[in-house]
Design a binder for these strands. Structure first.
Lengths: 154, 154
DNA sequence: TTCAATTAGTGGCATATGCCACTTTCTGCG
DNA sequence: CGCAGAAAGTGGCATATGCCACTAATTGAA
């Protein structure tokens, strides 16, 4: 790859991040394939699992994803019977989410496959390096980035 | 966010990466919004720009994306007149891609918006840190990760 | 030369994500 | 109490990505 190609391109933090995400995503997807889950779905099931019947908004916030996107992503998981929703007792606007027994089982199954990929990855880059990378990524994700927004004088 | 939530989740390198990508993606998307381009489209136009009438396969390889995905992503850009394709002179299977004059203009326009976002980001995390992060991400993207693939004895 | 295998793309199908407009509930204030 | 405004989701629409099956064009070897 000559000077003009990747280097110039990779100065963009966003593009570099997406590129890495596509690459790693395929790897984890492949690893999880036997379970029938995608990496994203696995992550979502796991997030639900470690939370306590979270509200949709809570999940969306934790994963930094759009609420409606979460709704869309949840649909196949509900359709396949891995997840179910129910209204909050005190606020009928709130919809809570939990794993079904099948969802729990599927997650357990996927966790085994995930471990293999995770270990493989960490063997390659080093557990320490991986942890640092994740920390850096979390920091980036939680940055309070905002466009100058046309600098309102007020 | 208590112990059970983000920390457990964020042990997954893939999930952490996607989360950061969603977050940063929105930031760059917002910045580019006035141009009408998404971050991905901007990246794609730029990649085409710095390459020399690349074949689709070449672009897909550089961006580590599926060839068919590239084809899909290219469609809106072609429809909007920013990009055009033409067959390779020597190999009729190969389809080459280039920016139209409008595409070039749009890229120039978007580059200004991109710079603002890029600068903003680097002011926050430090240019040095950002460069390190990109290097780490490129390293991850280019890792030769492969599943044991059921260890074929042959 | 001829045909099997390989290579480059396409189209269909499915998930991943976002934004926007709209509905339903709540909340807070007058 | 009653209504304006906020908060939580939904549905529609569009792009982002991948996989698979299939077509067209090339290549390599018999």
């Amino acid at each position: 790859m000559n000077e003009a190609q990747k280097p110039g391109f990779s100065r963009c933090n966003n593009a570099t991040l997406r590129r890495a995400a596509r690459s790693l995503g395929r790897f984890y997807d492949d690893a999880l394939a036997p379970s029938g889950l995608k990496g994203t779905q696995f992550g979502l099931l796991f997030q639900i699992h470690v939370s306590d019947e979270p509200a949709m908004g809570t999940i969306a916030e934790a994963l930094i994803m759009d609420l409606s996107a979460l709704g869309h992503t949840l649909k196949p998981l509900i359709r396949d019977g891995y997840v179910e929703t129910f209204p909050d007792k005190d606020d009928r606007r709130v919809k809570r989410v939990r794993l079904t027994p099948q969802g729990q089982a599927k997650l357990d199954e996927a966790l085994k496959l995930w471990s293999v990929a995770q270990r493989q990855f960490e063997d390659k880059v080093g557990a320490e390096q991986a942890a640092k990378l994740r920390a850096a990524l979390d920091a980036v994700a939680d940055l309070d980035l905002e466009m100058p927004a046309a600098a309102p004088s007020v």
